[in-house]
Design a protein around this nucleic acid. Structure first.
Length: 774
DNA sequence: GCGATCAGAT
DNA sequence: CACATCTGATCGC
């Protein structure tokens, strides 16, 4: 049942948004054709720019079958939003689940905001808008202030670009080139726009690539060169200089398989140990600890140490706080232990890399913790040699690019399919990421420290210090409220979200300040804003061994970051790098450029008052995009109450917050989850629901993948089906290829560990063109 | 019945 | 591809 005018009238209306009246009759309105756009746009430039060719989406739309054979039809349902229909027909948010995952599914909010459409009374809306959305968490206010304080220092929030957007000449670098072979409307472009750069990128890189191949022997760069220039197997260290490239791969792959098999054999137990009892299965690894305790005359704490699964490695890094947390509340015993521990550390610092063989490494092969093996290749060479290839920083990269299931055959044409005999789909991918070190991926271990980063999928008793770089599912996955493995370190914003959404008690959360060195377990730790999503951090670890490790988490390199003095003053030994877009094909524009594009596109279409604009976002992420749209256009954007609650955690100023409204009548720009925009099917559903109020939907999908492979040089895409237009805009919260390049150049690490190893076979080559010295 | 985990989806 | 997420099934408590 469509919303009637009467219904609309009875809802309270806001004057905030003035609908332009100069548009043609709504009946006139044709589903945005290129001509129409051009002729009506306030900015001819923008409209011509928008004239991307309309292509058929590649993915066939089909309903998917669940495992049970049930039709999995995406739909907007009450259940999706986690609210309840009340007796009177009104709908209320289900408070008990306000922050349940589904509750944040803003895309499903249409039922909520348009209850009459689905047969509810208007009280519903009142229920909604009158919903108590005040957090009531005063205890956080200090923390939030702290966040705000960081604004001026170059945090996520600092990149307010409003003034630049308003004043600067519009750079239509994106969404302007049509299919890629169209000529860009000449007058409107300067010759040296980013677009040109984009267009030239591929050829340039190809050339570069060629040079590399000839000059340096690109195929060999996947392997480690030792100091004498011999090529070593990244796994066993054997000299393989004399082998052909293929033979080298074969050799390496065999090694991987061996290591993997070993890791499988020994590592299966820890994960399964719930069933067999945590203690007995690997009691031996605690025996040294227990003996040590006994020698100190503290046998009575044996139980605690076993319960917390403190093995010898973990022991070395326990702090007084840890001991207290474990339940050793008496000061005397804690003193005794910490003193004994400091003695231990002194000893072990003499033998620098000497972490004892890891718990699950029964084979003698160093199977864990990132501090070993890998470092051997670059050990001692803090100075970066000139013309070092990027893959020189990826010891064992050959192992990563290889499909783990392709065993030991050399294959460049292996394609995407993984042999059925082994893993399939995502499982296989995970194995790619996690291979090499048994269970714990290399990138989550910080060499020289007892720390893990974003490794909650691999919780173990051998670690007490868990860092979380930001609050995205793929980084906190595995973290549940029953977490009992020590302390979690993260930013204020992340801590707040972790506490709220997962229910981790504050006692387990340690907030890390920004731009300020602190000491944790004998390691200096400094955090910087990662410019990824709110609360995201880059972490610098300076362990006693002098080999600084910089872990970027997910990050987008930006000017402010380049200005940080640490990167110049501190020698970074190991860089754990977000390599999501470490491929020349990903060279998207600056965020502000994309934001400007979105703003202009909205303006171009806004002559039609019956246009609904949708902007995609994540639970956390892409805020800057819709906030800037709101600020520049001076229009509020609609968010659901649940989303607003999240936004309130992110440290935005009161001034910024006023651009958000939970009253959808106040805005024709709605913020929705990205996946709502993923398919036209869903968009059509939205369109149907809004049939009375809107005749056109313009959706923006902000994603770095907008520039991916199949899409070639088209820098942003416009799709249209009937009265629905969807733009894929290259708004990325990860570093582009060239930004990665700049960052690596700036940091000049001796060693790089990629945190994303999901590149196909070809990208190895692409990576090699990442020359440091260029 | 609930939470944790995983497989399979967009 | 998969940025990050959702959904359903399964298992253990």
């Amino acid at each position: 049942m469509p919303l009637t005018n009467d219904d609309a009238h009875r809802r309270h209306h806001s004057s905030q948004f003035q609908i332009p009246t100069n548009a043609g009759d709504e009946d006139d309105f044709l589903p945005s054709t290129q001509t129409l756009l051009s002729s009506r746009s306030q900015k001819p430039l923008a409209t011509s720019d928008l004239s991307l060719h309309i292509s058929t989406p590649k993915r066939p739309r089909r309903s998917t079958q669940t495992a049970t054979g049930k039709e999995n039809v995406p739909s907007i349902t009450y259940r999706d939003v986690g609210f309840k229909r009340q007796k009177n027909g009104a709908v209320a948010l289900d408070d008990g689940e306000v922050f349940g995952a589904s509750d944040i599914d803003l895309g499903c909010s249409l039922d909520l905001i348009q209850p009459s459409i689905v047969g509810c009374s208007y009280e519903t809306h009142d229920v909604n808008s009158g919903e108590e959305i005040v957090d009531g968490d005063d205890k956080f206010s200090g923390a939030i202030d702290e966040c705000k304080g960081s604004k001026g220092k170059g945090g996520y929030l600092v990149n307010s670009i409003e003034s630049r957007l308003v004043n600067s000449r519009v750079d239509y670098d994106i969404g302007v080139s049509g299919s890629g072979d169209d000529k860009v409307s000449g007058d409107d472009f300067e010759s040296d726009t980013e677009l040109d750069l984009l267009l030239n990128l591929h050829s340039e890189l190809d050339e570069e690539d060629g040079i590399n191949r000839e000059g340096f022997g690109i195929e060999a760069t996947d392997f480690m060169l030792d100091e004498e220039g011999l090529i070593q197997c990244p796994l066993c260290g054997v000299d393989i200089s004399d082998l052909s490239d293929e033979q080298r791969l074969v050799h390496t792959n065999d090694c991987i398989d061996k290591v993997d098999a070993e890791a499988q054999n020994v590592a299966l137990t820890p994960d399964k140990k719930q069933t067999s009892g945590p203690r007995q299965s690997d009691n031996s690894k605690f025996s040294t600890v227990l003996k040590w305790l006994h020698d100190l005359g503290l046998s009575k704490y044996e139980g605690l140490f076993v319960r917390e699964e403190v093995d010898w490695d973990t022991l070395q890094w326990l702090t007084d706080e840890d001991l207290n947390n474990m339940g050793i509340t008496a000061l005397g015993p804690r003193r005794k232990i910490t003193h004994a521990l400091s003695e231990l550390r002194k000893e072990s610092s003499l033998v620098e890399t000497s972490t004892n063989s890891r718990a699950y490494s029964s084979t003698g092969q160093q199977s864990n913790n990132g501090s070993d093996g890998r470092e051997g290749s670059t050990n001692g060479t803090n100075k970066t040699p000139p013309n070092k290839l990027i893959t020189d920083y990826f010891p064992g990269f050959a192992t990563n690019k290889k499909n783990p299931c392709s065993s030991s055959s050399v294959q460049k044409d292996v394609g995407k399919k993984i042999p059925d005999s082994l893993n399939k789909g995502k499982t296989a991918k995970r194995n790619v990421r996690n291979r090499k070190l048994g269970n714990v991926p290399v990138w989550s271990c910080i060499p020289g420290t007892p720390f893990r980063v974003d490794a909650f999928r691999h919780l173990r008793g051998d670690c007490f210090h868990w860092f979380l770089t930001h609050f995205h599912m793929d980084h906190y996955q595995g973290l549940t409220k029953s977490f009992c493995h020590g302390m979690i370190y993260c930013s204020t914003i992340t801590a707040k979200l972790v506490n709220m959404k997962i229910g981790i008690p504050w006692e387990r959360l340690q907030v890390l300040p920004l731009d300020q060195k602190i000491n944790i377990a004998g390691v200096d730790v400094t955090c910087f804003d990662a410019n990824h999503c709110p609360g995201s951090i880059i972490i610098l670890f300076e362990p006693p061994n002098g080999k600084a490790v910089l872990h970027t988490g997910d990050f987008r390199f930006c000017e402010q970051m380049g200005g940080l003095s640490v990167f110049q003053t501190c020698r970074i030994h190991t860089l754990v790098l977000d390599t999501t877009y470490c491929d020349p094909q990903y060279d998207f524009p600056k965020q502000e450029t994309v934001i400007q594009f979105v703003i202009d596109a909205i303006q171009a279409e806004a002559f039609n008052p019956k246009t609904l604009f949708l902007i995609g976002c994540y639970t956390i992420g892409k805020e800057r995009l819709f906030l800037e749209v709101a600020r520049v256009l001076r229009k509020k954007v609609y968010v659901t109450a649940a989303k607003l609650r999240i936004l309130k955690c992110l440290g935005f100023s009161a001034e910024d917050m006023k651009w958000f409204t939970v009253n959808e009548r106040e805005s024709h720009i709605h913020v929705v989850p990205l996946w709502t925009l993923a398919s036209f099917k869903r968009l059509k559903h939205v369109s149907t629901q809004y049939a009375n109020r809107f005749s056109l939907i313009v959706a923006f999908s902000p994603t770095g993948w907008a520039l991916s492979k199949g899409k070639k040089k088209s820098p942003g895409r416009r799709w249209q089906q009937g009265t629905i237009i969807r733009y894929e805009v290259p708004y990325s919260e990860h570093s582009s290829f060239s930004e990665l390049k700049d960052f690596v150049k700036l940091v000049s690490p001796a060693n790089i560990i990629p945190s994303v190893n999901n590149h196909g076979p070809d990208s190895a080559r692409a990576m090699t063109s990442l020359l440091l010295s260029s």
